[in-house]
Nucleic acid binder design. Sequence first.
DNA 1: TTGAAAGCGCTACCAC
DNA 2: GTGGTAGCGCTTTCAA
Lengths: 341, 341
Amino acid sequence: MQDKRRITLKDIARDLGISISTASRALNSYSGISDETIKMVKDYAEKHNYVPNSIAVNFRKNKTLTIGMIVPELVHHFFSSVISGAISEANKQGYRLLVSQSDESLNNEIRACRSMLAGSVDGLIISISNETQEGSHIREFLDEGKPVIQFDKIIENLKTPKVITDDFESAYIAVKHLIDQGYKKIAHINGRKEVKNSIDRLQGYKQALLDHRLEFREDWVPHCTDISEKEGFDYAQQLMNLPTPPDAIFCITDLVALGALNFLKKNGYKVPQEVGVMGFSNWKIAEVVGPGLSSVDQHGFEMGEKATSLLLELLKEGLTGENKTYKIDTDLVIRESTQKS
Amino acid sequence: MQDKRRITLKDIARDLGISISTASRALNSYSGISDETIKMVKDYAEKHNYVPNSIAVNFRKNKTLTIGMIVPELVHHFFSSVISGAISEANKQGYRLLVSQSDESLNNEIRACRSMLAGSVDGLIISISNETQEGSHIREFLDEGKPVIQFDKIIENLKTPKVITDDFESAYIAVKHLIDQGYKKIAHINGRKEVKNSIDRLQGYKQALLDHRLEFREDWVPHCTDISEKEGFDYAQQLMNLPTPPDAIFCITDLVALGALNFLKKNGYKVPQEVGVMGFSNWKIAEVVGPGLSSVDQHGFEMGEKATSLLLELLKEGLTGENKTYKIDTDLVIRESTQKS
DNA sequence: TTGAAAGCGCTACCAC
DNA sequence: GTGGTAGCGCTTTCAA
């Protein structure tokens, strides 16, 4: 293997008979350098394929031009969309993205944070794991003056900017759509009771029922723990076997909705005529399943962009940011599964 | 904001009345340092929460402990699985993963390569974009002695280790399954004619037909350009409208298979009784579509792990690697769409 | 077993 | 407009 040493500023300076500082200034087009010199140096650099050693630059400037991103799960339409948006925005501004995942484990999350904090990133964008309750490992960033943006799954009382889906509003709109379609007994397969997204969606669901004078029943609101297809199937079964079964099911997630849909299809319920089904997240499966699943699109890409631009702004200003919450709009995507009328 | 300066070796040395080099050696437990000193320094470091400035270490050692990964598209079940596997393996060995995507654009790919080459990574794992024909931007890594691993979509004549799906074998097995099920007129919606994966799958398809004395017809092998659902739909239509329509369709990808499936369902063809459909990649959609789509699972996570461990091995040895190809096994996942019998 | 010092490549300050 | 030089934090010779 060849280890062709890269040409350095020193080489340029020597070959051109100028000083290193002049070469540096010329390449960075500082004021106070003659156009002549600038041209000479730039031409030489071009010709000899000079690439500044960015490790050295980083070292000198004490920054990395890299931002870290930690998500609970990478193989997931929503999170990969967010990452995609983050990369896009970061690259636009000359930054790179270091990606890690916690696999929903607090220990992994802490390890990832530590590794990034050791000097590989200038700031952090994170969506916490299910296990994370408290954020001392995240606070370490702030303590060193490195900004953090939380998104989607957040720790409320950690003083960072937050980018989230407006879960209340989105759930409200989704349920209102069901109501508008003429469904009257609307159940909600919710998520974990202690997770903010679940709580907010549940509130939005309740408020929509309240505002439209529809009945709310505790036994119409089961709570998932895994948020899996199987749970969707099982809870749909449980709901439909109630003495008073619902005529629509609003699901915490498309995967759960898929399970519900499968139960309903398998057992001869007509969707959407007898039972309406609404998902959340608008994954690819919502589009391809039969019948097409109405869902709420969370604009993951946009969320990634927003979180990144917020972080870069703070980086530019040298701040760690205020405790402000930014809500990203959602879109209700209406498909067959709720088209009763 | 607070900018609590982090404690450095210098601080430790000063406070402990020893030299910087001793402090450094103690922390790294070099031989030739008294246990006493080691203990003293380590205790002090622990107590004052010393974290080595990894930018400085990187600079000094001229490496970053970071590897770069460039994929055509991040929001994609296969690629996010690969990334997930790569992160897992990299972290295990103390490395981090910098992720970028080309969006199937050669220019973006070149830009991403340049950015990483400038000093942010020690090596690269890449799956090239559809537009990429030639790899001078990748060769720049090798020229600097930085190893590269190609995976999935590769440039054959670039001297790097390669990790790929055994497309020939996988296609062969998939088609053989169709044959075993009793299908006799098997079409293949292929990909671009110049892309290696397409070519190999086509060859596997042909060989399976040949070995089982089934007819091969050019007009049964249309070529996609986008590899989209729409193309699947359109080509299925084209195939079924031929004077001699096929009784099974092997699709280059699940998305294409989905389009084909949709065409068939919409037009009253019974799947799998009248027409069998086989996908490739085994995305989530293959599992959830009705009827369930038989497909070939590519083991993305494993591929990411393998590519990463190969890269780290080279990094350890200081080599750029040989032109060796590693084929990752696939699994045939049989669902309803091909269960004729 | 320890210390002094060079130096990685670059930027930025201070002279001239 | 340009050059000299200090120094970022660390590792690693070389000397003692």
